[in-house]
Nucleic acid binder design. Structure first.
Lengths: 229, 229
DNA sequence: GATAGTTTCATACAAATGTTTGAAATGCAA
DNA sequence: TTGCATTTCAAACATTTGTATGAAACTATC
C-alpha cells in the first residue's frame, strides 16, 4: 500500500457529506465526486458502501469509548481505586456531549457525523451499536463499586437515563432550542454535562430513605456540589 | 367514495410491514402484495409513498397527543384548574410509554410502528415531528402554572429530560434488557412511568434551595408519593 | 339501461444506485 | 528494463424503486 491517499480521501468526503446531508440522500457517486476519485475506488478499498459507513462509525465510536474509559480510569485513580458516582456519570456522558455539542464543534465534521448516526441509524451502524453493551458493562461495574449496597436494577435504570438525557439532547438540540426560544443554552457544554450528571445521580438515589437527611446534590456555579439540608 | 376497502387495506398492510421490517426495506410492492391490491392503488389513494407514511404517522401522533391533552385536562380539572407538576409529567410521558411498552403491546402494530418511527426517522416523519413543538408548548404552559416561581429555562430542561427518558426507553428497550440481563422489567409500564415521572420532577427541582426542607419525591409501591424529611 | 364518475388493473417508464469488469496506468523489486 | 502486484479508470450491469398511463371494470344516478 504505497499511500492511503484515495482511501482517506473517500473517508473524509464520505464523513463530510453524511454529516451535512444524512445517509439517506448521499450516494457513492456524490462521495467519489467530492473526493475526486473514481467510482470503483469505494468498492475496491472498502468492499461495499455499508462497510465504508461501518468503518467511519467504528473509528469515531472507538475514540469516544476510549475517552470515556480514560476519564473513568483517571477518576478511579484519583479516588484511590474507587471513583465517585458523579465522576463515573461524568465520564459516561462527558465525552459524547463534549464531542457533539458546543459552538466550536459546529464545524466539526466528526461531531456532526455522529449526530447523524444517532438520528438516522442505518443498518450497518445499528449492527455496531448492538456491540456497545459490553462497553457499558464496564460502567455498570464501576457504578456497582461506587454504590455497593444498591440494587442492580436501580443502577441500570440510572445508567440508562443518563444516556437517555445525553443522547436526546444531542438528537433533539434543534427542537429544544426552538421550544425554549433560545433560552436553553446549548453552547454551554459544561453546564449541560453538569445538569445531566446531577439528574443522573438524583435518579440513582430514587427510593433512598436515609436514616439521616441525605446529601442532596445541588447545581451551583455550573458545578456539582453537595449541600446538606 | 363507495367503500374505503382498498385505502384502509393499504394503510393496515403498510403499518404492519413498516412496524416489522422498518421503512428501509419495505417497498410499495411489498405493501400492495400484503394488502392484495394493485400497485397503482397507492399513488391513486395517497399520491405518493411519502404521503402514505405521513398519513400513518399523523394518525398515530394525533391519537397520542389527544390522550396527552385529555390526561392534562383531567388533572387540571381535578386540581381545581391547576394540575400538580407530577400529574403534568405523567400526562406527558404516560400515553407514549403505555402505547409502546408492556407485554400486551407486543403484538400491537400501532405501537411497533411508532417505535420504528422513533428509531428510523425518515424525511416525511421528520417533517411532521417538527410541528410537534406547538403541542409541547401547551405542556410548558401548564408547567409554568404549576411552578409559578420557577425559571423558564429549568422548566424546558425538565420537559426535555422527561421526553428523553421516555423516548430513549422506547428506542433502546432491547439494549436495556440485554444490558441488565433482564433485571429491568420493561413490561411493568406503570412502574416505568412512575420512575420517569419521579426523576423528571426531581430534575425540575435542581437548584431548589428551600427555606424549609423540601418535599422529596420518593418511589413507594410503584406510585409517586411525597415524604417530608 | 345509458351515462358519467370513480376505482382497479396490467404494464411500462424513467431514473437512481451499488456493484462488477477488464483494461490501462502506476509503483516497485530484481 | 522486465515482470509482477497494486491501484485507477471508464463503462457497463443488473436491479430496484417510485411513479405514470390508458384501458377495463365497477358504481351510482338519472
Amino acid at each position: 500500500m504505497a499511500s492511503d491517499h484515495t482511501r482517506s480521501a473517500i473517508l473524509a468526503a464520505a464523513e463530510r457529506l453524511y454529516a451535512d446531508r444524512g445517509f439517506g440522500d448521499v450516494t457513492l457517486r456524490d462521495i467519489v465526486a467530492e473526493a475526486n476519485v473514481n467510482l470503483a475506488a469505494v468498492n475496491y478499498h472498502f468492499g461495499s458502501k455499508d462497510e465504508l459507513i461501518a468503518e467511519l462509525f467504528v473509528t469515531r465510536s472507538i475514540q469516544t469509548n476510549r475517552e470515556r474509559l480514560n476519564e473513568l480510569k483517571a477518576a478511579e485513580e484519583a479516588g484511590g481505586g474507587r471513583a465517585s458516582i458523579e465522576d463515573i456519570m461524568r465520564a459516561l456522558v462527558g465525552p459524547t456531549l463534549r464531542g457533539c455539542l458546543g459552538p466550536d464543534r459546529e464545524g466539526s465534521t466528526a461531531a456532526r457525523f455522529m449526530i447523524r448516526a444517532s438520528i438516522e441509524s442505518v443498518p450497518p451502524i445499528r449492527r455496531i451499536k448492538n456491540r456497545e453493551v459490553d462497553h457499558l458493562r464496564k460502567f455498570a461495574a464501576a457504578m456497582r463499586r461506587a454504590m455497593p449496597g444498591r440494587n442492580d436494577t436501580e443502577l441500570y435504570w440510572g445508567l440508562h437515563f443518563a444516556l437517555a438525557m445525553a443522547h436526546h439532547t444531542i438528537r433533539e438540540k434543534e427542537r429544544l432550542l426552538r421550544l425554549s426560544e433560545g433560552k436553553c443554552d446549548l453552547d454551554d457544554v459544561r453546564a449541560i454535562i453538569d445538569r445531566v450528571v446531577t439528574v443522573s445521580v438524583m435518579a440513582l438515589t430514587i427510593g433512598d430513605v436515609p436514616s439521616k437527611p441525605a446529601a442532596r446534590p445541588v447545581l451551583v456555579h455550573g458545578r456539582l456540589t453537595r449541600q446538606d439540608l
